[in-house]
């Protein structure tokens, strides 16, 4: 332990502060994990949709042959610069897309499903979507062109929302930790007032006394923070384990497991907790000492 730490005895009741920091670190790690999962999910959704265009030819009573419109739309797409690939989805592929919502009932095959064309934009190429939309509509009046920008924008705002919420939770946890440590230090200063006054009388600078406190709380927060973070890491690892054996840890949500590279971010939490404790200790002690003669 640091040389300064021994000047202050371990507080009675310090265990309850340790428990609070363990819980705070656990919650912080959960929030950070949620942010990492949201970020990863948003990236995977984006990469799945960015660079793709879907053309739907809706069944229409007034128009003519939908297959003719499909061919016309495909023709436009294949002659558009920047489109790497365009192909019609088979009826089986289209039925597969609606199966999660409508099922695979025989009735479904009788439903007037739209004809779908999936087009891929060549990487690094730009396509003038408005111009393309006009050209396809001219060739195939029942076509709807979707470049997924609306869906992507909503996904982006959802991911942003989750991320900022997680950061907000992390900030609140940091503030709560600082307030708790500050409270504990004031109680500690009161309990060890005689020691503080003795050091003060012996000519110790305020910074020397503050260091005696701050290192004490630094190491306490580092250890407690590491325990709380390890608990949360264990929980996420359990999620990874469940997914590895084919079980969905949380239904309907993206995989809740974290990769090793993502778990490495968790190391930030005990370090941040210990520095928050150190800074809070320093300001609290200096504030109290400023009022002593």
């Amino acid at each position: 332990m640091n040389d300064y730490g021994r000047i202050m005895p371990r507080d009675r009741g310090a265990a309850s502060l340790d428990v609070v920091i363990v819980v705070m670190a656990f919650l912080a790690a959960l929030a950070l994990g949620a942010a990492l999962i949201a970020e990863r999910a948003a990236v995977s959704w984006r990469t799945g949709l960015v660079g793709r265009i879907t053309v739907q030819i809706l069944p229409s009573e007034k128009a003519g042959d939908p297959d003719h419109e499909v061919r016309a739309a495909l023709d436009v797409l294949r002659h558009t610069s920047g489109i790497a690939h365009a192909a019609q989805l088979s009826e089986r592929e289209t039925a597969e897309l609606v199966r999660p919502w409508l099922g695979a009932d025989a009735l479904v095959s009788e439903l007037p499903l739209p004809k779908l064309i999936d087009a891929k934009i060549a990487p690094g190429e730009g396509v003038d979507i408005d111009n393309l939309r006009r050209q396809i509509r001219a060739a195939a009046p029942d076509a709807i062109i979707d470049d997924h920008t609306r869906w992507l924008a909503r996904l982006r705002s959802l991911a942003r929302g989750v991320l900022w919420s997680a950061y907000g939770v992390l900030l609140l946890i940091a503030l709560a930790t600082a307030a708790t440590v500050s409270f504990a230090i004031r109680a500690g200063l009161q309990a060890h007032r005689e020691i503080v006054e003795l050091l003060h009388q012996m000519g110790a600078h305020s910074s020397f006394i503050a260091r005696a406190f701050e290192w004490h709380y630094f190491f306490a927060a580092l250890i407690a923070g590491a325990i709380g973070t390890a608990l949360a890491a264990g929980l996420y690892s359990a999620g990874t384990g469940l997914e590895a054996v084919g079980l969905e840890a949380v239904p309907f949500l993206p995989p809740v497991g974290l990769h090793l590279s993502e778990l490495a971010w968790f190391l930030v939490i005990p370090v941040a907790a210990s520095w928050i404790a150190l800074a809070t200790a320093r300001f609290s002690v200096l504030g109290v000492l400023a009022r002593i003669y």
Partner: peptide, 26 residues
Amino acid sequence: QFPALRRRIGVVFQDFRLLDHLTAYE
């Protein structure tokens, strides 16, 4: 400047004011 002045003064307190968690040497 008080810490520098206080370091020039040694005090033996009537109630000793030793730190109980430190050794005699410390």
